[in-house]
């Protein structure tokens, strides 16, 4: 789906009804996670729809959606690039890697590329300081990062997109 475009009520109905038919109460967070997985963010009308389906006040759903860092209310890219700026990575040049990634993706002050392929974020420690500086793209961790490796790694994910488009 296009993050700026129409969002499908049926898809949310699918997630809510098919996934959680037997345990609607108490499943709010799991449902929001599923929606976040599918759209890479929580669309406003998805929150409204989920609240209505579950009979939970919208204010409560909104409260939960804004409480957890895992949820985003603004559209995010398909691939999440996390650049570690924890102490070890910072000392070993994580900042320069981040700059290089942002330049490469033409990000300026934005977090997400215009084509919604990548969202770049800073994180404080991924828990593998001996591999510093570390960059994580989705579930892949890249150790001992250098600026020179950045274009190649990003291309790998861009190619995935092109392969799908064809």
């Amino acid at each position: 789906m296009n993050p700026n475009g129409t969002f499908l009520v049926n898809e949310i109905e699918d997630i809510v009804l098919n996934g959680y038919q037997n345990s609607m109460n108490g499943s709010l967070i799991s449902i929001l996670e599923d929606i976040q997985d599918r759209y890479h963010f929580l669309p406003k009308d998805a929150l409204i729809l989920v609240s209505e389906r579950l009979g939970i006040p919208l204010s409560q759903t909104y409260s939960i959606a804004t409480f957890y860092n895992a949820f985003s209310l603004v559209p995010k890219g398909k691939h999440l690039v996390s650049v570690c700026l924890g102490t070890a990575c910072h000392v070993r040049g994580g900042g320069a890697i981040l700059d290089k990634i942002r330049r490469e993706l033409d990000l300026d002050s934005r977090e997400t590329t215009e084509d919604f392929q990548f969202t770049v974020e800073e994180v404080r420690c991924l828990g593998c300081c001996s591999l510093s500086p570390v960059v994580r793209v989705d579930n892949d961790t890249y150790a001992h990062m250098t600026q020179a490796r950045v274009p190649g790694i990003l291309k790998k994910y861009q190619r995935e997109k092109e392969a799908l488009d064809e």
């Binding site: 929150l47 909104y62 804004t66």
Partner: peptide, 26 residues
Amino acid sequence: GVSAISLVNRGVDKKVKPPFEIASRD
């Protein structure tokens, strides 16, 4: 019984607001 407002965000950004921080429908 209308739950028009809730605590949104967390930590230092926590505040009382209606959903989406716009005039509440409820």
